[in-house]
Design a protein around this nucleic acid. Sequence first.
DNA 1: AGACAGTATGTTATAGTATAACGTTGCTGG
DNA 2: CCAGCAACGTTATACTATAACATACTGTCT
Lengths: 168, 168
Amino acid sequence: MPKASPAAFYFPKPSHDHANCVAKALGEAEIACARQGAQFTPLRRQVLEIVWGSHNPIGAYEILDALAEGGRRPAPPTVYRALDFLQAHGLVHRIESKNAYIGCSQRHEGGESGQFLICRACGQTVEACDPDLAKAISQLAAASGFALECQTVELTGLCPICRKSLHV
Amino acid sequence: MPKASPAAFYFPKPSHDHANCVAKALGEAEIACARQGAQFTPLRRQVLEIVWGSHNPIGAYEILDALAEGGRRPAPPTVYRALDFLQAHGLVHRIESKNAYIGCSQRHEGGESGQFLICRACGQTVEACDPDLAKAISQLAAASGFALECQTVELTGLCPICRKSLHV
DNA sequence: AGACAGTATGTTATAGTATAACGTTGCTGG
DNA sequence: CCAGCAACGTTATACTATAACATACTGTCT
């Protein structure tokens, strides 16, 4: 049975090299799009870069605001379309409980979605990919005669750092 | 290790005695409120009854529409406040992926929230309470140094009935 | 080159979801 | 009586998302 990874694996330190996160994500996105014959246009790239601006989920209208800083502000459909594209290609995920979007940090097999740990204090959100949890979910579905297509797993609480600083 | 329950346990048949579901839910709600010293007012009762109108999640504005049929239509805050109350007392759950609400069909211990199986075809949604899944979630949290407070588990797919009728 | 098909983006308007802020009512206990 | 509190009413507005239609770009076929 696989052992869960230690905490350090999941939550990035405040001091981590975030520029590297962004660069890596953009580079991998480029490759993934090329492989799928999808157009990684400047707009889509820009939206993905904005989403990857932090490890906190960002709302569609915040993305609009960010786009507005580099020229004139597009209308909402522009950003929603870009987000739809990025979601469809597994480059971002929607966090349902916050109506917000976050960059995908896992290489999924076959469009499956991940599991999220969301800090209610700092907003930092990490994507996990726990095989035991995935297995428990598919077993629950199977036992119910349910044909599982899509899963939303969002766990809210306190990340290790906020936990410590709030003395919880 | 506990064995998962069979499908019949989870998805209610179309022919089931739904009036009984409603009556049971309202009765238990009354008792729960009394025990917690909370006021189960006529409005709150009415909203809970509307939410329990089916096993499909219902939107806040649909609840408003339903309330409008029995007199004049209240403003949105009225229904949101009732929903807040019902959620706080564990009588309804919010389905994040649908911006909608459903009656709680489990007796939770200590305010924990459940796991939902949502049929994308008929909308029917059931609340599961799978100990293996719960365990996997707490282990994931623990391994990440994460203080889990609240979980959102929403599984979308096809219920046994729709699965059959769609030949999937 | 010119016509066309398909995809991406722009634009306008509107639908759907949720809350802030303040007012009113009605009950309860000092 | 009246101070305090909880529930509910009312008005206005914020936030999130999409429908519908217009324009522009890209490549392909003749």
